[in-house]
């Protein structure tokens, strides 16, 4: 599987270049959209908080910083999920016209998610620098702490990509569910909530620890729930490798149904 990706590196580059160039040719703002979309989201949460509609609880840092970190991290998860989920269906007719390593499609899609993630990290760094915010040296591990989260997003996306070829509703269903899951994850509010049932969902949700752990590392220089974070990392890695295997076993069989 890895070998296929390595041997297809030139194809991955060409496909990446194709989508990047073609996308930029029909867009006035181009790459700026990577930043505009999350910024609009952040502004809306901050405004809701400012006018008193949203009560995020005690978050320990200024709310705009908290929500910026939370939505950036969540955005990366969703970005990798969406890219992986679209890897087969976005190729469409090409799969019916030529034989090539389909892992190249996944790698090409993920490369776009990586670009978006880097742009968001750059935005985060710029806010930190402009705001003169302090940062602990452990925050250098922040990008590494994001890896399990993006692997989980990629894993879910790979499973969806296989089933979406035969049943198109899968993508819509899972994307809607993940959208709901954001509200069961402490992205825009603190992890302690006054509702028992929601609190239980938050505690059982592995994304709580993957999102929260990375954010803790950036804001506080440590991961607060280390054992839970480790469990969530194991879950994310397990799901990713299972999904990768599933993709490898099934993609050829389902691709011909496109």
């Amino acid at each position: 599987m890895v070998g296929n990706v390595v041997s297809s590196r030139e194809l991955i580059w060409q496909l990446f270049k194709r989508d990047f160039l073609a996308g930029s040719k029909q867009s006035a703002l181009g790459l700026l959209w990577i930043l505009i979309t999350p910024l609009v989201g952040i502004v809306s949460w901050v405004v809701m908080n400012a006018v008193g509609v949203l009560h995020p609880g005690e978050v320990g840092v200024p709310y705009p910083i908290y929500v910026l970190c939370g939505t950036t991290i969540w955005g990366m998860f969703m970005g990798f999920y969406s890219s992986a989920a679209a890897s087969l269906t976005s190729a469409g007719g090409l799969l019916a016209q030529a034989r090539f390593s389909h892992e190249a499609l996944v790698a090409q899609q993920l490369a776009q998610a990586v670009i978006a993630a880097l742009a968001n990290l750059a935005l985060l760094a710029a806010v930190w620098a402009v705001g003169g915010l302090s940062v602990h040296w452990s925050a250098l591990w922040f990008p590494v702490s994001l890896l399990p989260l993006v692997l989980l997003g990629t894993g879910i996306g790979l499973i969806v990509s296989v089933f979406a070829v035969v049943v198109h509703d899968i993508t819509k269903a899972v994307t809607t569910l993940l959208g709901l899951l954001m509200f069961a994850t402490p992205v825009i509010y603190a992890s302690n909530v006054p509702h028992d049932w929601l609190q239980r969902v938050i505690w059982w949700n592995p994304l709580t620890y993957l999102v929260g752990g990375a954010r803790d590392l950036l804001l506080e220089g440590r991961i607060n729930h280390m054992s839970s974070y480790a469990g969530a990392v194991a879950f994310a890695l397990g799901l990713f490798f299972m999904a990768w295997r599933l993709f490898f076993l099934s993609e050829q069989k389902v691709a011909e149904r496109l």
Binding site: V166, V167, L246, S250, V254
Partner: peptide
């Protein structure tokens, strides 16, 4: 669609 889903699950 049904057979495709079954085949993927059997493959898994």
């Amino acid at each position: 669609m049904f057979y495709g889903t079954c085949d993927v699950l059997r493959g898994m």
